[in-house]
Amino acid sequence: MRIALILIGAALALAAPFFVYPVLLMTILCFVIFAASFNLLLGYVGLLCFGQAMFLGLSAYIAGQILKTTGISIELAIMAAALVSAALGAFVGFVAVRRSGIQFAMITFAFAQFVYFLLLQSEFTGGEDGMQGIPRTHLFGIIDISDSRTFYYFVLAMTVLAIFVVYRVVHSPFGEILKAIRDNEPRVESLGFRPERFKILAMTISAGLAGFAGALKATVFGFATLTDVSWTVSGEVILMTLLGGLGTLTGPMVGAGIIILMNDELAQFGEWALIAQGIILILVILFLRRGVVGEAGALVRRMKARRAK
């Protein structure tokens, strides 16, 4: 059953660029990674980072700057930018993890606003105009991927890699400790662990993944803007995760897909996209506590239980 679903998903993902505009698909994939990075913190450690966009946006600019000035191959630029975000994540984590709940959220928010301001004022980012003309250099220095459809497969491969990283972390010995911290932090401490250290590493990994998404996104569009660092994007990723299903591996991916498609459809109506997001958030909180994927999973379990009887 599960394998069949994965195969169908793979077939759809491979065939999609022949039916749907590749740039839209790539946007979805970037946000799939971004939402997965956010879910790693909120869903598996219980940390609400209300500044996830700083990792996305900073990395977009860094990757852009590297590609514009050095011309090194694209995968190296993306990796380097992701590492910068990971380092920022480690630093923010170091300051913030001693706090929990709303205080943690506010500290991360403050950092994100600070990063926004720095990028706005910096010379190299182009300020409010954003950074334009980021080139797509060759993959591994030799493979030409400038064509949108070819590039889509590169982004798809990177997404699979990123999701695998999340899967590995969640289902690792380390991941088991993270879930224990989420469920009962004082207890973890009483068992001889230092929970804050585990949280810092989790934030580092999450920020690295968010940065990975941001760098990828910069190469998709060929530009980086302040929107990627803005607090609305930090808010949007919360909505994606909750809509899809917190603490499930596939939930945030589905949520990211729905929100991006909806934004795309509603873009012509201007502010309506935001209003629709607000309404969806209310509906999810009222009726879909576990998100789309979480509720679907619960439904399947109920049906199985009924059949077992």
Partner: peptide
């Protein structure tokens, strides 16, 4: 104080990981 979403086995295994070094292997 248990870890509600972990199984009984996992609950105990978390404690066994204390000082085991494996806890960091993500």
């Amino acid at each position: 104080a248990t870890f509600t979403e972990l199984t009984a086995l996992e609950n105990v295994r978390v404690a066994l990981q204390s000082g085991h070094g494996s806890a960091w292997r993500f």
